[in-house]
């Protein structure tokens, strides 16, 4: 299956892109997506603990199972205000 991924904040600089797609096996979780992204974008490594993930507009836990076509956002801690 394929999921669409967008990056925010300095993750765009770390990856060199604001959006990409990732092919994953059926039943893959958010954690597996992050592992795949870290393999493609080595500069993302090391920040996994604080990395936040959303599917659509809801935060997603690392064990959340992804579905074909999910719109996933990956970003560092938020800093509004």
């Amino acid at each position: 299956m394929n999921v669409n991924v967008q990056f925010f904040s300095y993750f765009k600089q770390l990856t060199g892109t604001s959006a990409t797609s990732e092919a994953l096996p059926e039943g893959a979780t958010v954690a597996e997506l992050l592992t795949a992204l870290a393999a493609r974008f080595p500069k993302l490594r090391g920040g996994e603990k604080s990395t936040l993930v959303a599917v659509g507009v809801e935060y997603a836990a690392k064990d959340q199972v992804l579905r074909e076509g999910d719109e996933v956002s990956v970003f560092p801690p938020v800093q509004g205000g």
Binding site: S9, Y59, S73, F75, V78, Q79, G80, G81
Partner: peptide
């Protein structure tokens, strides 16, 4: 404000 700083997807540079 505290919740915003933890959850609202805004970043600053």
């Amino acid at each position: 404000i505290e919740e915003m700083k933890a959850k609202v997807t805004i970043w600053k540079r």
